[in-house]
């Protein structure tokens, strides 16, 4: 085909579709909690692992995880990456650190961004805390936690968090 004279190489068809999503029961509780500066996880019952953010079901058992449990907004970095790739829908200045944070009281890593931290100081095991949006900007969106930042607490040894890394 490439030897066609004056071949039309490309046309542009803009596609715009609007969707009206449902958060679902589990995520609704989590998102409402954010408006009150609370991080709520979910579990299938007492003594069971706390999933943050809630996923609707405990993936190991596929049991409905409907019981909401508040966890701390402090946690430990279990792994991280320094991102230097630009993208239109990312609101952070490059480079920035994304990290999996194991919140105190949770049993699942929570993915977010680290700020106020020198790039060469980021490490697995470091302690961090959520930095919340101003009260009048708290919404039903994960961006109500603007980012996580380091706090002055001793590192957690890798062996204690390895299971979540």
């Amino acid at each position: 085909m490439s030897d066609l004279p004056n071949a039309l190489k490309s046309i542009v068809t803009p596609v715009r579709l609007e969707y009206d999503h449902s958060a679902g029961a589990a995520a609704t509780g989590f998102l409402r909690g954010l408006t009150q500066k609370k991080i709520l996880g979910a579990r299938t019952g007492p003594g069971e692992p706390v999933l943050v953010p809630p996923r609707g079901a405990d993936p190991r058992t596929s049991e409905l995880a409907a019981e909401l449990v508040e966890v701390s907004d402090k946690g430990t970095v279990v792994t991280y990456s320094i991102v230097r790739v630009p993208s239109d829908n990312i609101p952070f200045e490059l480079p920035y650190v994304c990290a999996t944070v194991l919140l105190d009281g949770a049993n699942l890593g929570f993915f977010h961004v680290l700020q106020n931290c020198a790039l060469d100081e980021v490490r697995i095991g470091m302690r961090v805390q959520a930095h919340w949006a101003p009260d009048d900007q708290l919404t039903e969106n994960v961006s109500s936690i603007r980012y996580f930042e380091p706090i002055d607490e001793p590192d957690v040894p890798f062996e204690q968090i390895e299971e979540y890394a």
């Binding site: 999503h21 958060a23 995520a27 998102l31 792994t79 991280y80 990456s81 991102v83 790739v85 630009p86 993208s87 829908n89 990312i90 609101p91 994304c98 990290a99 999996t100 993915f111 977010h112 961004v113 039903e140 969106n141 994960v142 961006s143």
Partner: peptide, 17 residues
């Protein structure tokens, strides 16, 4: 999806950690 914040660009951001 709505309710969430875009944290990483592309698959690399997921696999790097």
């Amino acid at each position: 999806p709505p309710f969430s914040v875009a944290v990483v660009a592309g698959a690399g951001g997921f696999f790097a950690p």
